[in-house]
């Protein structure tokens, strides 16, 4: 991506040319990066949080209850968002053959938009995974070490 912008500048000055409509494909790549990155964030449990309550709670059991209740809600929310993203994909698909396309390069909108659906699906899946491992191991020492993000303690 950085290379592209360099190329844009180099092309402009050295070749006096215009890397035409590069924003159309670069934004597609960007969207896939955003949402795969977001999914990895769910896997690593590194999404941005403001967990005041967790720092107030003292016992591992209380933390365990809070985290797993939150994870359950999170999974439900994520699933609904995922379903809404599915509706968007469905809308794109149904329009075939008159797909929404970008104006210059004719890239179908479904290409970047699919990343939103897939990213949210993985986020829901990883949330479920965290919830499952939390419920299985119970409020143990090991669980605290694994599931409570290091910067919230």
């Amino acid at each position: 991506m950085a290379l592209t912008f360099c190329l844009v500048v180099v092309m402009r000055y050295i070749f006096e040319a215009d890397l035409f409509a590069y924003e159309e494909w670069i934004l597609v790549i960007a969207f896939w990066m955003y949402f795969i990155g977001g999914a990895v964030g769910s896997y690593e449990n590194s999404h941005i949080k403001a967990d005041f309550l967790l720092t107030v709670l003292k016992t591992a059991r209380a933390k365990w209850v809070l985290v797993n209740v939150t994870l359950t809600l999170e999974f439900i929310i994520c699933s609904i968002l995922c379903y809404w993203a599915f509706l968007m994909i469905q809308e794109e698909l149904v329009a075939y053959p008159e797909w929404q396309r970008t104006s210059a390069l004719q890239i179908p909108f479904i290409v970047p938009r699919l990343s939103i659906f897939i990213g949210l699906m993985f986020m829901a899946f990883y949330t479920l995974l965290h919830l499952y491992s939390g419920l299985r191991s119970g409020p143990s020492e090991e669980w605290v070490n694994e599931e409570i993000p290091p910067n919230s303690n």
Partner: peptide
């Protein structure tokens, strides 16, 4: 602006273009 028509027209008018 990012449109093949606008680009081609502007170049025909004698300008180099940057989107």
């Amino acid at each position: 602006w990012s449109s093949p028509a606008a680009q081609s027209a502007t170049q025909t008018m004698g300008y180099n273009t940057t989107t």
